[in-house]
Design a protein around this nucleic acid. Structure first.
Length: 426
RNA sequence: GGAGAGAUGGCCGAGUGGUCGAAGGCGCACCCCUGCUAAGGGUGUAAGGGCCAAAAGCCCUUCGAGGGUUCGAAUCCCUCUCUCUCCGCCA
């Protein structure tokens, strides 16, 4: 959510900033219901003030044993007028809130211009893609040779876009998650979090998935609006919702390994083969809550922590700064990490690291007490994958494949694989 | 799943229809006094929003959430959520 004061005071600049995303801010609509809101709110406040004074007068009159019938009559009138004023205010407020909730975050100045992913800017590259003495295949074929990567069984159980892992591949998947958690808790100073996989609509509104992106979520049947998490970002970031943190409590750095559930309603026909795009996948997520002045340093740091996973796995990757048109709804600035996939012959997204500044904090009412002002102010939140476990496994299978169908286990993972050096066809 | 109790400010805790945004305590901040293995006194101390260019100031909202009764609700009624205790069941 944007700062409504800023929106009112600095409307032109906000509009200009959002236009970089290709988002058209309807200034006329905003000004019109802003005008109406002001009018109705002032009137409602005035009526309430008068009603309160009147009710007090009734109390005093009765206390003194005086006749209060005129005051009572006035009170009835006021209550009636107030009731209609409040109905009007609620309507305007609801309209204004819905509009405000639909506005994306402001972009940081350093975000490159551009309409779509083709304009993303490569910031750096690490590692050199291995040259194969044979033609490398994609992870589906690697898995088929190896055995243990079963999309057919998953189809019978759940439908398309699910996978069943067996044996060594299942263990490799688990090893990756364990390795990442240990790296971030041990070397990077994160606190590990185990959080609910089912969350309320409020939590999702806080991080920005609702109300706009409900079609991407799996909703649970039942009386209450509950959803499966699309990312651990939701429960973990919401840890600070409706809290006021002291300066000493910041920064907070959390890591969580969770499954993620996405209906991917808009992605039909994309990446239908293999494990790249699934309804259910595991991810190790990094979340920071920081002082506003520190959030851009934190973004660099968080991104470096995610990169370290790929470095230790010795997987070639590149870092992109997303352009204005490709950046997510709630983010001010995002780096994507793309890992090299020999089977596809290209780099594919494996992590996305974002500084949401105060966008989520405002929605969640997550604040910190700024010692300079003495007042609670929205803190800044960041999140990034560190990294997607399923896609990391895809990358390992493809980059470490051998001519005989075996897959070498990356050195960093061997302690988690009982020391074995390779997965071999069974 | 059954039975009961509860939800008040950073924390504890009073408050059953009217000057209650809320006694008292703790904590915290500042000041004063005193002076040595500590204590005493005073003052202040919620959040959100509106009017205003802004500050000051004024106003509104908030006692788990939502609705209702009333001139007036922390207080009465209804619904929901959460917490605790006991029983049952289970991992």
């Amino acid at each position: 959510m944007l700062d409504s004061k800023q929106l009112r005071a600095d409307t032109e600049n906000v509009a200009r900033n959002l236009a970089r995303r290709g988002f058209v801010l309807d200034l006329a609509a905003f000004r019109s219901f802003e005008e109406r809101r002001k009018q109705v709110q002032i009137e409602a406040d005035r009526l309430r003030s008068e009603r309160n004074a009147n009710a007090k007068a009734v109390g005093m009159a009765k206390g003194k044993g005086e006749d209060a019938s005129a005051l009572l009559k006035r009170g009835e009138e006021l209550t009636q007028q107030l009731s209609s004023a409040e109905t009007a205010l609620d309507a305007v407020q609801a309209e204004s809130d819905a509009w405000l909730m639909g506005l994306p975050n402001l972009l940081h100045d350093s975000v490159p211009e551009g309409r779509d992913e083709s304009a993303n800017v490569e910031v750096r590259r690490h590692g050199i893609p291995r040259s194969f003495e044979f033609t490398p295949v994609d992870h589906v074929d690697v898995g088929a040779k190896l055995g243990g990567l079963d999309f057919e069984a998953a189809g019978r159980i759940s439908g398309s876009r699910f996978a069943v892992l067996r044996g060594g591949i299942a263990r490799l998947h688990r090893a990756l998650a364990q390795f990442m958690l240990d790296l971030h808790t041990g070397d990077h100073g994160y606190q590990e979090i185990y959080a609910p996989y089912i969350v309320s609509g409020d939590a999702l509104t806080g991080t920005g998935q609702l109300p706009k992106f409900e079609q991407d979520l799996f909703a649970l049947k039942g009386e209450r609006a509950l959803y499966l998490i699309p990312t651990a970002e939701v429960p973990v970031t919401n840890l600070v919702r409706e809290q006021i943190m002291t300066p000493e409590q910041l920064p907070m750095r959390y890591v969580a390994h969770t499954p993620c559930f996405r209906s991917e309603a808009g992605a039909a026909g994309k990446d239908t083969r293999g494990m790249i795009r699934q309804h259910q996948f595991d991810k190790v997520e990094l979340v920071h809550m920081v002082k506003p002045t520190e959030s851009y340093a934190a973004l660099e740091q968080l991104t470096a922590h995610a990169e370290e996973v790929l470095k230790r796995l010795e997987l070639p990757y590149r870092v992109l700064a997303l352009c204005a048109g490709d950046i997510g709804f709630g983010s001010s600035k995002t780096y994507d990490l793309e890992v090299w996939l020999p089977g596809q012959g290209k780099y594919r997204e494996i992590s996305s690291c974002s500084n949401c500044e105060a966008f989520q904090a405002r929605r969640m009412q997550a604040r910190w007490r700024n010692p300079e002002t003495g007042k609670p102010e929205p803190l800044h939140t960041l999140n990034g994958s560190g990294v997607a476990v399923g896609r990391a496994m895809v990358a390992v299978l493809e980059n470490y494949q051998n001519a005989d169908g075996s897959v070498t286990v990356p050195a960093a993972l061997r302690p988690y694989m009982g020391g074995i050096e390779a997965l071999r066809p069974s």
